[in-house]
Design a protein around this nucleic acid. Structure first.
Length: 263
DNA sequence: AAGCAGAACAACCGCCTACTT
DNA sequence: GAAGTAGGCGGTTGTTCTGCT
């Protein structure tokens, strides 16, 4: 029903594969400007040769400022386990209970860790059941298998806790340091964006027959990096350019952030 | 150092639902 | 109410990273 390329007049073939840094920067810039909506439109006017879907996914899973990077902690794992036991594969729902984690992240984590554990437990239980007298163990259902798997995994997670929690502490400290800076930066962005009423902007865009040209005139034209100096110069873009905003998991980036905060 | 296997992560695809016209 | 569209979701695949031999 919904075609990926969607939107009006999308003649160019959408680009696929890994995102380049300039694409990320471009996306961040336009999301800050236009908000997290109308992804097809955003994809079109930003000059990114990506589908709206792809843009949204990139933003939600990788570029969103609220994202927590680093390994899933023992606490998070326990939460995932219990929520998965309750809701099943409702990843987005589970993700809402884990601030800073995306459904994709949790889904991947489950695939690589938990499912394997669950399967192992299942196999063990099966072997055990076969080994034992078949008469007494006929009531071993799939449900109980997975339940025991969950319980065991949970226990395993607890034993791993010391090592993992150490990492998470570091991550949290690091994240906290970053957050304070990004808040500062956000303030700059908000200050800039508040100069323009975004809703009014959307209305104007909707009313305009030639909105792509209108947007292009802002300096997208397929390359914000080059066109960025157009008036008014965006603090977002400057920040992206100077501090590689898109590489939010990069330690070097964090260091730069800290330096930026001190200046 | 090279090769391999498994883990981790990023991205795409297809379907579904909610919303708009 | 029907049709079309945008966005969200879960499943899956492809790529990169990491540790081991």
């Amino acid at each position: 029903m919904c075609n990926n390329s969607g939107g009006r007049g999308g003649a160019r073939a959408a680009r696929k594969g890994p995102w380049a840094e300039n694409e990320d920067a471009q996306l961040v810039w336009f999301v800050r400007l236009l908000g997290e909506r109308r992804w097809d439109f955003l994809a079109q006017v930003s000059g990114l040769r990506r589908t709206g879907k792809s843009c949204r996914l990139r933003w939600v899973n990788y570029l969103h400022p609220g994202l927590k990077r680093g390994r899933i902690t023992a606490d998070e794992e326990r939460l995932i386990l219990s929520l998965h036991a309750e809701w099943g594969s409702r990843w987005s729902r589970i993700a809402r209970k884990l601030p800073g984690r995306t459904d994709n992240e949790i889904k991947n984590y489950w695939r690589t860790h938990m499912r394997k554990k669950a399967q192992e437990e299942k196999m063990l239980a099966k072997k055990k059941a076969v080994a034992e007298a078949s008469s007494s163990t006929t009531s071993l259902t799939t449900t109980t298998c997975s339940a025991s798997a969950t319980a065991t995994s949970s226990r395993a997670a607890t034993t791993e806790a010391p090592q993992e929690s150490g990492t998470s502490m570091d991550d949290e400290a690091e994240e906290e340091a970053t957050t304070s800076v990004s808040e500062e930066n956000k303030a700059e962005v908000v200050q800039y964006c508040s100069a323009v009423d975004i809703d009014q902007l959307w209305n104007d865009i909707a009313a305009s027959e030639s909105y792509p040209e209108m947007m292009m005139s802002w300096g997208s034209a397929g390359n914000v990096a080059v066109a960025a100096p157009v008036e008014p110069s965006s603090p977002v873009w400057e920040f992206c350019e100077d501090y590689s905003l898109w590489r939010i998991d990069d330690h070097e980036y964090y260091n730069k952030i800290d330096q930026h905060a001190l200046n």
